[in-house]
C-alpha cells in the first residue's frame, strides 16, 4: 500500500513538473507547480522528514507560490484571459537537457553509494534539527536571519515606485 502511494506521488511530481516545463499557458504552469511542491512534500514524508514536509508546504505553497501568482497577475494585462508564453530554442534545449538527464541518471545508478545497512527511521526530526540549529549551526542560522532581513529591505526598496 505504501509502495503504491509512493509511486503515485512520484508520478504526480514528475508529470506536474513536466507541465511546468512544457505548458504554453503560464497559469497552468504555476498551478501545476503547486502540485509539484505538494508532491515533493509527500516525498519528504516518505523520507521521514516531517519537519521539512511541513516547511515545504508553509514556505513554498504558502509563500513562494503566492508570490509567483502575484508576479504573473501584476505583469500581465488581466483582461487577456489566456496568458501565453513563448519559448526559445526548444529543440536545442530539449537535446541538451535530455543529455544532461541521461548522464545524471546513469552516474547515479552506476555510482556505488556507501549505503548504510538499513535506511534510517527517524521518529521525529524536529528535536534533532532544533538542537543542531542552536548548536553547531548557530552562526549559519544568525547569518540566515540577517540575509532574510536584507532581502526584505531590498525587495521593498526595489519594488517601491520612484517618487
Amino acid at each position: 500500500m505504501g509502495e503504491v502511494i509512493f509511486w503515485v506521488i512520484w508520478a504526480l511530481v514528475a508529470v506536474s513538473a513536466m507541465i511546468v516545463a512544457f505548458s504554453k499557458n503560464l497559469v497552468y504552469s504555476v498551478f501545476s507547480l503547486l502540485a509539484t511542491f505538494v508532491g515533493v512534500a509527500g516525498i519528504y514524508i516518505f523520507l521521514n522528514a516531517d519537519f521539512l514536509a511541513v516547511t515545504q508546504i508553509v514556505i513554498y505553497v504558502g509563500g513562494i507560490l503566492v508570490l509567483l501568482v502575484f508576479g504573473i497577475m501584476l505583469t500581465n494585462r488581466i483582461v487577456v484571459a489566456r496568458i501565453t508564453q513563448s519559448s526559445l530554442q526548444r529543440t536545442t534545449g530539449l537535446v541538451v537537457v535530455g543529455a544532461i538527464f541521461l548522464v545524471l541518471v546513469l552516474t547515479m545508478l552506476e555510482q556505488p553509494w556507501p549505503l548504510a545497512e538499513s535506511a534510517a527511521e527517524f521518529d521525529s526530526t524536529v528535536d534533532k534539527i532544533g538542537r543542531l540549529l542552536f548548536g553547531d549551526y548557530l552562526i549559519l542560522f544568525e547569518v540566515a536571519s540577517v540575509l532574510l532581513l536584507g532581502a526584505l529591505i531590498g525587495a521593498a526598496t526595489l519594488a517601491r515606485k520612484e517618487s
Binding site: L47, N48, A49, F51, L52, T55, Q56, I59, Y60, G63, I64, L67, L68, W113, P114, L115, A116, A119, A120, F122, T125, K128, I129, L132, L133, Y137, L140, A144, L147, L148, G150, A151, L152, G154, A155, L158
Partner: peptide, 27 residues
C-alpha cells in the same frame, strides 16, 4: 541523509535552501 549518512544534517541544508529560495523569490 536517510540512506547514507543517517543523521539530520542534510535536513538542515534543505532548511537553508528553502530559506534562500524564499529570499531569492522575493527579490
Amino acid at each position: 541523509s536517510k540512506f547514507v549518512t543517517h543523521d539530520v544534517e542534510g535536513h538542515l541544508m534543505a532548511v537553508f535552501i528553502i530559506m534562500l529560495a524564499a529570499a531569492e523569490a522575493a527579490v
